[in-house]
Design a protein around this nucleic acid. Sequence first.
DNA 1: ATTTTTCTTGACCAAATGGTCAGGTTGTGG
DNA 2: CCACAACCTGACCATTTGGTCAAGAAAAAT
Lengths: 213, 213
Amino acid sequence: METKQPRQKGRRQEREARILSAAEKVFAEAGFGGATMQLIADMAGLPKANLHYYFPTKEALYRQVVENIFQIWLRAADVFDSATGPAEGIAAYIDAKMELSRAYPAGSKVWASEVMHGAPVIQDYLETTLAEWTEGRMEVIQRWIDEGRMDPINPRHLLYMLWATTQHYADFGHQIETLNNGAPLDDAGWTEAKRAIKQIILTGVGVEIPPET
Amino acid sequence: METKQPRQKGRRQEREARILSAAEKVFAEAGFGGATMQLIADMAGLPKANLHYYFPTKEALYRQVVENIFQIWLRAADVFDSATGPAEGIAAYIDAKMELSRAYPAGSKVWASEVMHGAPVIQDYLETTLAEWTEGRMEVIQRWIDEGRMDPINPRHLLYMLWATTQHYADFGHQIETLNNGAPLDDAGWTEAKRAIKQIILTGVGVEIPPET
DNA sequence: ATTTTTCTTGACCAAATGGTCAGGTTGTGG
DNA sequence: CCACAACCTGACCATTTGGTCAAGAAAAAT
């Protein structure tokens, strides 16, 4: 049934993945307008014309990059649901998003850039998927509040603060690096960042900080 | 002695201001690479060649925009110093930065974009002015901690959280607007945002929330 | 009034960019 | 071995872009 998909990866998938990876970096470093197909091609180690075989236009390639990031984002947000209470849920979400910021800084930047420029290609996602996810999480938080398991705070702004703070470590990674004497955060640095964020936010919403994650 | 500077504004200053204002918007909406001199010229209502009379290159114009923003940023940060303690200082800083996010969203986006792309034009500011400012504020916070006026938290990450959270309302304004049913935050919305942020962070660092600002 | 300086702008240019395409190569099923 | 499809790529093109320039128009200085 699966005549395609030659046991290994498949030329096509491997090529597309390589192109997407290069595109993510270039779009993150230069923005959509500043990125050139030639630059992406060079970074992917392929002739420019070949990119257009897999992705018809620069915009199509960009769209694919943004959608991929969005999916990763959403998937990681599930930790919020499988939590037994506010302390575990929020702590797990902070940890998850911080790990994403560390693992996919370029993706985070592309996302930030896309939103900053008015979300020209993922506006529909914002209005549907993201709006629904946000609504759902706000309800969860509100329930925790109603049950007296955390202080009454505005769930919407709590979510914004979680996004802002965690993504900051990716989007402004260069600034953080500069203020860290030019060196990127090491393991200890990231751990300390997560710890500090959890301390402030969890204390801020009136819950105990869970022991280990 | 001041033969220049004809009582009113002066043609030159007025022209430069108009160009800079248009440039700020265009750079914010399209990024450095996506912005074109023609677009800026149109928005400023001037022929393109005229821009090059006041600003020799696109990069020079961009540099001026970024430096202006940086100055506004720094100036507003002074509220931190004139505070009598952590509660007032942090609260005032949050208020000030939120008001800047509301008043200069384009500027904030240009700054974010600049940093995200590796700070090609303001790297030196990051290394000197910003680094010094950060160092100074960290000392202030550490002193408050040592004096037992707030919980022991990592001053560096507290600052990052303040920057991230407040700037988020400018940089991700479009996303916030979309999640607010397509409408920008009104006066009440901004007040509520500031209140929520102060509640979480001030509680999070173990100080009382000051009454009014 | 005349000279000198500052400013304005349409027309123009070289370079870069997204995208195309025809001809070729590689792989695959029969 | 052949035929067919998928894949690759150097050369090419139309358009856009940052930037220039020369010829003037205003203003200011004399």
